[in-house]
Amino acid sequence: MEEYSIQVSNLTKRFGGFTAVDGVSFNVRAGEIFGFLGANGAGKTTTIKMLCGLLASTSGTATVGGFDINRQPDRVKRAIGYMSQRFSLYEDLSVAENLTFFGGVYGLSDAGLRERREWAVAMAGLQGRERSLARELAGGMRQRLALGCAVLHRPGIVFLDEPTGGVDPVSRRRFWDLIGDLSAGGTTVFVTTHYLDEAEYCHTIMLMHAGRIAAGGSPGSLKAEHIRNPILEVESPDAIAALDAIQDQSWAKETSIFGTNLHVSVDDAAEGERLVRRTLAEHGIPAARVGRVTPTLEDVFIQVIEGKSEAGSQTKVGA
């Protein structure tokens, strides 16, 4: 087996004068869960569409499953499964009919189709709902059905574009278990997400920002590389006031809102905690809790993206 299922080199997509994907290069190892992260409009969907043969690239090359996306699009299509960002099954067909249709389109034999359909129904937890129309299913079920349809023909590589968008946390968790199963079975999973907590399940993460790769690596190595300073979490009833008070202090390297809390990056954990408490007390802001936390990918994300925009503003000043 090849070491890499997907190899991308200098892939670029321009829409008119706007560059949506700007010379990205990366490799995806066979059988891994490859997480593609980035804010809205970063270029994730555009990249996936080029790799699946839905969009022609402006320049650059890539191979998917060993096939060139520009020269062998038909071979690529047979090697992959794809689940698009919007739900794209037939809402007026039942669960079983959707599976039958996609199985037929991929040329499964009758026996093979029956076996895979049963497998997909079980995988999606839709036993007893085979005759329900797709439009009658809850969000999580729909997404699992869409996944079932995408991998019915046992592709070696599957592209999932924001598969858990708008789905409840329990269903999200369950979906990621399925992704884990696929990967354990040898399937390469290329997945995009907005949820940074989900990225922790990935073997490799690629962070995209404004059409370029901003950072990449395993979750552990990303944290090690980008988070050198300890991070303190500050819980306060008035997080906004706390942010205003702390972010102007010279000792606070990086301050950001994190849910309802504040994350402050400092040089030393014990000294930082003392400084935070003193500053809040000076401003008359109550603090429920201040303590060190293990950095998350969100911390990395903020670090990397803010680093980028600072670099951007510096260039502007210099120019």
Binding site: C52, G53, L54, D74, K77, R78, I80, Y82, S84, R86, F87, S88, L89, Y90, E91, F102, V105, Y106, G107, C149
Partner: peptide, 13 residues
């Protein structure tokens, strides 16, 4: 309009 065309476009059809 419903996006199913995209799903067909990645199939061998």
């Amino acid at each position: 309009e419903r996006g199913t065309m995209e799903q067909l476009a990645v199939s061998p059809v």
